[in-house]
Design a protein around this nucleic acid. Structure first.
Lengths: 234, 234
DNA sequence: TCTTTTTCTGACCGATCGTGCAGAAATACC
DNA sequence: GGTATTTCTGCACGATCGGTCAGAAAAAGA
């Protein structure tokens, strides 16, 4: 998977050049660096999701990660740089989830796999989705460049695939763009609005069985509008 | 439309009792009060949407409303009280939008009207939707009581209506709960993610024609999974 | 007019924020 | 061992926050 280069723009580690030069001789330190940064990123994803960008304080992120505030600043020089890394991670994950949308694949299976994977991510990585939602709601004040450079071209490539399916007569001639938006909306809804869904589920989180029902229902609703008319449909 | 009493809980105006008693004799002052509070509420809805609860400062809301900060505090004693009023307003509007979901109405038309109205609101009142999304994403730290008291019963009533439609054989036996979630997700997506959609539209807002296409596409996708099989479908 | 009530505002307080920085502590390198 | 580099941390600074309060200004009531 292509790394999210756009988000690293403002990162210029004093140490990174050196550690690239002497990479083989400094294994232990590098491993610790990765462990700590991973712990900070996980904590940041959770805190940014639960409090928003403005409401998330570095000290709270540090507390969740079990580190002093200064240590977080040491690894991620500014709050904004840390935030960009968090947003970039979820975007990379989402992008990989759409690998099944390729011209050679069967449309219904490909879209079904995409929905399944995206709903799995809604369950396993809900914080990342919430951070993304917050950023977009607030008009992408920090990652707007990324929307224009990466998201735009990526989206148009996927639309081209769906258009090809339509031209080949493999699916109904629906609007590819609105289909993508529909999939994004419904799958991310189950991540971003987890709390509402849980409250409407008598306050208890969805069970494995309920998540499977959700997957089936979402695919049923969405793909019913995509699949070619089946005269044998009950 | 039933007012949103739950959100007024913590409001206890020093003046409200008096102004109720002498309502007829104090027309001018009351009118001003309503004008100013309306302007504050509009500004607050916008600022809460764009910066989140933590990021929205009273001084910024006041600046947007064209008032000194102290004046905002005078009318809404705390930031939290002002926020509750804003969230309550959008919820009341959304609740009214679902009036068409009644047993006696034709399912397809009723759901289509609901989707149309909700998408109109996504265009005309996008800030309210964003405030709601932010609140839910952050696990409803301020209006959780309202979710449990109002949203839960309201949702179950709508589910009962859809269940009745299914029992009458008017629609396919889909999951009413997931259908509601799907409608919420897709309609609110066009409000909450307006900025992403605009960016993917070459940076220009959707035109009237594009909004009509959106309505048609959303209804096509969703209602196709709801309507009974039509053997004449092209 | 005089009094009372309501409306409005600037000044201020304690708390928290992001971040810079000096220097301690730990590790790597020779 | 000693030196250099990286890692880590406490402290301090200016800015901004939500909210209080005294009192001015305006309106209402008599």
């Amino acid at each position: 998977m292509k790394p999210c280069a756009g988000f690293a723009r403002k990162r210029a580690w004093k140490a990174s050049v050196k550690s690239d030069v002497n990479k083989t001789t400094r294994g232990i330190q590098s491993r610790n660096r990765e462990e700590v940064t991973a712990r900070i990123l996980a904590a940041a994803e959770k805190v940014f999701a639960e409090f928003g960008y403005a409401g998330a304080s570095i000290s709270r992120i540090a507390a969740v990660a079990g580190l002093p505030k200064s240590n977080v600043v040491y690894y991620f020089e500014t709050k904004e740089a840390l935030y960009r890394r968090v947003v970039g991670e979820i975007f990379d994950i989402w992008r990989a989830a759409a690998d099944s949308i390729a011209t050679d694949n069967d449309p219904i299976h490909a879209l079904g796999d995409y929905i399944d994977t995206k709903l799995d991510l809604a369950r396993t990585r809900p914080y990342g989705s919430k951070v993304w939602a917050n950023e977009i709601i607030q008009r992408a004040p920090i990652v707007q460049d990324y929307l224009e450079e990466e998201l735009r071209s990526w989206t148009e490539n996927r639309i081209a695939v769906i258009d090809a399916w339509i031209e080949n007569g493999q699916i109904r001639p629906i609007s590819p763009r609105h289909l993508l938006y529909a999939i994004w909306a419904m799958t991310q809804h189950y991540a971003d609005f987890t709390h509402q869904i849980t409250t409407l589920n008598d306050g208890v989180e969805l069970t494995d069985a309920q998540w499977n029902e959700t997957k089936a229902a979402v695919k049923d609703l969405l793909l019913c509008g995509v699949a070619l008319p089946d005269l044998n449909r009950a």
